[in-house]
């Protein structure tokens, strides 16, 4: 049956204030059941407080073949990293 169902990517917000993170994918016949399936498969152990599902076919991805020109130019630009600041202990999730 799942062969006939489209694939959906699942994103979970683990707690308020954090962003949704990709956790995996599921098959489902439509959007409403995709949310239910995502809930039943990925949040059985209190993993999250919010769910997104997106049709996998709706995701526009970069071309792996183009990884060189896309990402390597950033490699040598160490000055773009904000590592020269002291971050106060109370600021988390950075």
């Amino acid at each position: 049956m799942s062969r006939d169902w489209p694939l959906w990517e699942v994103f979970i917000r683990s707690k308020g204030g954090l962003s949704h993170k990709h956790v995996g994918s599921i098959h489902a016949p439509d959007a409403e059941l995709a949310v239910r399936h995502a809930r039943d498969v990925y949040t059985r152990r209190m993993e999250g407080v919010s769910l997104w599902v997106v049709r996998s076919s709706d995701i526009v991805a970069s071309d792996p073949e183009q990884a060189g020109p896309m990402f390597e130019p950033a490699e040598s630009k160490i000055y773009r990293h904000p590592t020269f600041y002291d971050i106060p202990d109370v600021v988390t999730h950075i």
Binding site: M1, S2, W5, I26, H27, A28, R36, H37, D40, V41, R44
Partner: peptide, 12 residues
């Protein structure tokens, strides 16, 4: 169950 997702739904 007919699919893994349903297997988990019913078990839950």
């Amino acid at each position: 169950a007919p699919a893994l997702e349903i297997d988990l739904s019913l078990a839950n």
